[in-house]
Write a protein that binds this DNA or RNA. Sequence first.
DNA 1: CACTTGACCTGTCCGC
DNA 2: TGCGGACAGGTCAAGT
Length: 291
Amino acid sequence: MPELPEVETIKNGLGILLPGKIIKSIESDWPKGFPNLETDIEQFLVGAKIVKVTRRAKMLIITLDTGYSLVFHLKMTGQLVFRGKKHFGAGHPGDSLIGPLPDKSTRVIITFKQDQEKLFFNDQRKFGWVRLIPTAEIDKVDFIQKLGPEPLSTSFTAEQLAGRLRRRAHSSIKAALLDQTMLAGVGNIYADESLWAARIHPATLVSKLSQRKIYQLFCDIQNVLRLAIKEGGSTDRNYVDAQGYGGGYLNVAKVFRKENTPCPRCGSTIIKIRVAGRGTHLCPKCQKEIK
DNA sequence: CACTTGACCTGTCCGC
DNA sequence: TGCGGACAGGTCAAGT
């Protein structure tokens, strides 16, 4: 569920909270999710200072001053939440910590030197992971290097989208949008929302889309993602931001999880079907499949 | 090679 | 109330 807007929201929060913090200790009993912790903790993590927090696709990157970065993927149920002093200058020595406490889904606990503040990596379903990677090599790691363009990058163009879609000409447009090597950051929620906005049936074959439709989709992907970031992402059940608060996008969503309710555009009943192996929401009247 | 399906996990919800 | 099974959706390996 953490797609681009959710990870961007977490990044914005942690970007204010974490830089300058120094890691005191890391606890984890999750070798599968954090495989190199044992060998690397003393050398590259303890004592490291956080330089910045960034995002690439659905991954969150915490850059350290040791030449290494922690790269997180939250997959479906991951959370990165901070527990610390009051922020934005309101705290002072002696204040108690505020924010989320660890729970049974907490897989990694990073404790900072400053006042024992903590960052929790929670993941109910354990699909997520965190890797320690040399900062200079991040762009060369295969799962980063294979990624498609960032949809909100100023260098991303409709022509670029059309060009990359040609590689997926024989799949459904929904499957193509979910393909992170085609375009980075779009997941199930925003694929459905973007396709509704562009009036494209999710099962439409890419090869059947006109240039005009692709241009419309290009605009709508960006509009939907920007609105979702403004709303702080989508909270269904698991997603929370860096301080543990949910996002509001599902309150303004048009089709996602809106089956059996009226289409906001034409009043027809929104349906839920299965496309590309995913639950898929659409308006059968606004979004006619092109065979 | 292009594309689809199943596995990875755990919690929740539904029907019996 | 308890229990089995479907379902949730990001990604990769395996299968068609």
